[in-house]
Design a binder for these strands. Structure first.
Length: 291
DNA sequence: AAACAGGAACCAC
DNA sequence: GTGGTTCCTGTT
């Protein structure tokens, strides 16, 4: 990979395995919006960024940033030091994954902020992606700080103190219903230090998962998402309705329990289960697999 | 306009 | 430990 500076941004050249659409639409994040020109604008770690990838040319243009910030934040955020070619080659030994990878070949697993993901996936319970995005936008507008880019206001994700210090009934204005209580409780746990997400991140997958599930509202699926998308636990395999359907469709003859699906993934994909999950999720949604 | 979409808690058994 | 019901908001 090469980096070239431009006015208010950088251009990455000779980039492998990077497609903004695949990255931002494989279910791992909620704060990136597609623009007219096919680029995506979003906010992470307090910064607004615009991303335009050209897979044929092997370039990625990052706007509203600079070289320093790229090396400090975005290089790790986009997981640019990982060889996705090797991961795909390994997974493609399985014929189903080989096809799924053709659909989402430019997927990368983002390194997101654990606190933001804890709240985002509490927000996601029993809800579909557009609604989750809307609720997170509202919550950030209410409790985050404004950042402006190209005449538009974006809002940073609120810290635990901001949410812990407010009244539960106020949080309910973001229309997240019963999830507001979970979010408020989580904020109090993290703000008070009773839960330390960095310490959980340092644990092995299984104990980290148990620790996360002590938080009210965090079940197996939400925990797996936090582990995979913000704690680099790539052996996690979050099972939502899409993953349940696609796994049953290709690997089982009919309906099986969540427990059996997770066990299957562990045995079949091992340490790469999380990557497999992302390719399969994207594939399932492209195919619109139902029931 | 009734049906449906989407995970976890909670309570039986 | 499994199965059924409820929670809440929005879309089709």
């Amino acid at each position: 990979m090469k980096l070239r500076k431009i006015q208010n941004g950088v251009i990455l050249e000779e980039v492998q395995d990077f497609d903004a659409k695949h990255i931002f639409e494989c279910g791992q994040c909620f704060r990136w919006e597609r623009q007219q020109d096919g680029s995506y604008t979003g906010i992470a770690f307090g910064r607004v960024l615009n991303v335009l990838s050209d897979t044929a040319a092997g370039t990625v243009a990052l706007k509203n940033t600079n070289e320093d910030e790229f090396f400090k934040i975005w290089q790790h955020y986009f997981d640019l030091n990982r060889d996705y070619g090797a991961i795909k080659a390994e997974l493609a030994q399985d014929p189903v994954l080989a096809t799924a990878i053709q659909y989402g070949e430019g997927i990368r697993i983002l390194n997101q902020d654990p606190w933001e993901l804890l709240v985002s996936f509490l927000m996601s319970i029993n809800k579909s992606i557009p609604l989750i995005s809307q609720n997170i936008r509202d919550l950030s507008r209410m409790y985050g700080s404004p950042v402006y880019f190209e005449g538009r206001q974006y809002d940073t994700f609120p810290g635990p103190e901001a949410l812990a210090g407010t009244d539960l009934n106020e949080i309910k204005a973001c229309r997240a219903g019963f999830r507001c209580r979970y979010i408020h409780e989580a904020a109090k746990l993290v703000a008070s230090g009773q839960i330390c997400l960095e310490r959980i991140k340092a644990m092995p997958t299984e104990s980290a998962k148990e620790a996360l599930m002590t938080v009210i509202g965090v079940g197996p699926k939400v925990a797996d998402c936090i582990l995979l998308f913000s704690m680099q636990k790539y052996d996690s395999y979050p099972v939502d309705v899409w993953i349940k359907r696609v796994t049953e469709y290709f690997y089982f003859d009919g309906s099986v329990s969540h427990r059996d699906i997770r066990q299957f993934a562990r045995e079949k994909f091992g340490d790469l289960a999380g990557f497999a999950q992302q390719y399969l999720f994207y594939y399932a949604r492209e195919l619109k697999i139902n029931k």
